[in-house]
């Protein structure tokens, strides 16, 4: 987890009504398209100031959730609240505090980037001085300063960066981003992720993605959505501990083959993988393994060269949570 995660936001437990301290609160959120449930009773709370990663495979319901939060779609059942107000009642006062980037942002192709940002700022009724300063800063941030071409001639990456910039024009309290880095090259991705990380503590960022490395880099809390249901919500460390399918140890001894034989029958060893001189042990009880393994190695007459915990990746957690449930 990155530095932003050090100040991990605490997940607020489910409450009966919209909570003032929660930036986003979903209760039993259900969305049906015909008979198909895009969202199936989603409960979710995102604390103010959190950088929240909303993970899920394609078709899990991430975009539907964001569309409901942005007021573009209505729930079939349940409720969704942003900044303490139900989205169905949220008027201009709430919208003025939200920034939104859809997965594929649509722009007026005849405008330039600067014109579009001025237009977006005008919709928020920003005064001229503020608007000028923000447009200049956001064009710089988006790497579009000095670009005079019309948006119609932009690449997808340029449009995505402009999309992020327009979502920030009102200095929002809540930033809703749907797959913000999906169309970006590595440098563009880094810039956007740095920008998101810089907002930690000031702006609540709710972003959906399937790029797990992005989540690990900037998010403090995450939720995993699958088939319209939240299957896990926690800090990234908490998720790894609870859903890591056991924990792993990396072990190096002078004769790895003998150690494989020595540990094979131990009850807390789930899996032994060998890569050269290194053994990776997947264990069901990490504290027991850390205490007992040196003794096992000594009893086998082996010399211990390395013993350390091997962190489970978020990808493995994701596959464990989602992979087995896929048809």
């Amino acid at each position: 987890m990155n530095d932003a995660g050090a100040a991990a936001a605490v997940t607020v437990p489910p409450a009966p009504g919209p909570s003032a301290s929660a930036a986003v609160e979903l209760r039993g959120l259900t969305k049906l398209y015909g008979r198909k449930a895009a969202l199936d009773g989603v409960d979710l709370t995102v604390a103010s100031g959190a950088i929240f990663g909303f993970l899920g495979p394609n078709g899990a319901g991430k975009t539907t959730t964001l569309r409901i939060l942005a007021g573009l779609a209505r729930p079939t059942a349940g409720s969704a609240a942003v900044l303490g107000r139900d989205v169905l009642d949220a008027g201009n006062q709430i919208r003025s505090q939200i920034g939104f980037l859809p997965d594929v942002p649509g722009f007026y192709g005849w405008m330039t980037a600067a014109e579009f940002l001025r237009f977006a700022g005008g919709l928020f009724d920003l005064d001229d001085a503020t608007l000028r300063a923000r447009v200049a800063a956001l064009l710089e941030l988006a790497g579009l300063a000095g670009v005079e071409a019309r948006i119609g001639a932009f690449s997808r990456g340029m449009k995505q960066r402009l999309g992020v910039a327009q979502a920030l024009i009102n200095a929002p309290r809540l930033l809703l981003l749907d797959e913000p880095t999906s169309a970006l090259d590595p440098i563009g991705r880094k810039d956007v992720l740095d920008m998101i990380a810089a907002l930690a503590g000031r702006t609540t960022v709710f972003f959906s993605t399937h790029i797990l490395a992005d989540v690990e880099r900037v998010c403090d809390t995450v939720a995993v959505l699958d088939h319209g249901r939240v299957v896990a919500q926690d800090t990234i460390d908490g998720l790894k501990q609870r859903h890591g399918h056991g924990q792993r140890l990396l072990v190096e001894v002078d004769d790895p083959a003998r150690l494989v034989q020595a540990v094979a029958a131990l009850p807390w060893v789930a899996l032994v993988e060998r890569s050269g001189a290194t053994l990776r042990l997947t264990v069901s009880d990490l504290p027991t393994a850390e205490r007992a393994l040196p003794a096992v190695i000594a009893a086998a007459g082996l010399g211990l060269r390395r013993l350390e915990a091997d962190e489970v990746s978020l990808e493995e957690v994701f596959v464990e949570l989602v992979g087995e449930r896929r048809p």
């Binding site: 942005a70 006062q93 003025s96 939200i98 722009f107």
Partner: peptide, 14 residues
Amino acid sequence: RAGTAVLVLTKPIS
């Protein structure tokens, strides 16, 4: 169709 309505209507215009 162009998606511009989405960007406009998530801002303070009814």
